[in-house]
């Protein structure tokens, strides 16, 4: 056997277990990366009740009507980290049943109207401004090729709603938040929340 051959044989003998271990380490790291990715993507699916399902249940599992939630206190807190500094009204909606029209008045700074998918994506939010109250009128339409009826303009009349949202989910929930300004304003705040509407117009 030549010197080169002998050297190669010795190196191979020493490296074989090291190479085998390095290969094993590489396989472990790659497999762990796959587990990491799968666990991260699976986490939302295996987590507990979603805010959507909790709020929907509080709203009586009904759809297309605002429900004003009781004031958030230590004894009555439907979701973790839900601020007691707001009053809430929620409206679950289903655009599979028709076009959903939402109207609300934002009474100033701190007020907001948000739309969520069941997965918790907040795809639209309008916030109140200082000064005059902000009127919100939204029309939620599903993203679909289906014919949804003639537009008001096609029917020869002006559109009642200027803000038409093609939303990325059939189901969802509207959350109207009003800052809790204390006992003196409690009745006024609740009245404004109750005046919000969420109505479906069937196809």
């Amino acid at each position: 056997m030549s010197i080169a051959g002998t050297a190669t044989s010795i190196v191979g003998t020493i490296m074989a277990p090291i190479t085998r271990r390095l290969r094993l380490l590489l396989v472990i790291v790659l497999a762990a990366a796959i587990v990491h990715i799968l666990a991260t993507y699976a986490a939302p699916m295996v987590s507990g009740r979603s805010p959507y399902s909790v709020l929907r249940k509080i709203a009586g599992n009904g759809e297309h009507a605002f429900s004003v939630l009781p004031a958030v206190t230590a004894k009555s807190q439907p979701l973790p980290f839900l601020g007691p500094d707001f009053r809430y009204a929620v409206c679950p909606f289903n655009t599979g049943q028709g076009v959903v029209n939402v109207t609300a008045k934002l009474g100033g700074q701190g007020w907001s109207l948000s739309l969520y998918t069941p997965q918790g994506d907040n795809f639209y939010t309008a916030v109140g401004q200082d000064g005059p109250q902000t009127e919100i009128a939204l029309q939620l339409t599903p993203i679909t090729n289906r014919f949804l009826g003639l537009t008001p303009e096609a029917q020869g009349r002006a559109a009642e709603v200027q803000n038409i949202l093609a939303i990325p989910a059939r189901l969802g929930i509207v959350v109207l938040r009003a800052p809790d300004r204390g006992i003196a304003f409690a009745n006024e705040t609740e009245a404004m929340l109750r005046r919000a509407t969420c109505v479906v117009t069937p196809f």
Binding site: T40, Y41, A43, P44, S47, G48, R49, S50, P51, V54, L55, L79, P80, F81, L82, S112, S114, Y116, T117, Q119, G120, D121, N122, F123, T125, V127, P168, V175
Partner: peptide, 25 residues
């Protein structure tokens, strides 16, 4: 709460069960 949030952010808020508002506002 952004619709284009990364998987870690989605998993975090799904696990915590909180109703977050988009960081856009």
């Amino acid at each position: 709460a952004k619709p284009d949030a990364d998987p870690y952010t989605r998993a975090h808020f799904a696990g915590s069960g909180t109703l977050a508002v988009s960081t856009d506002v």
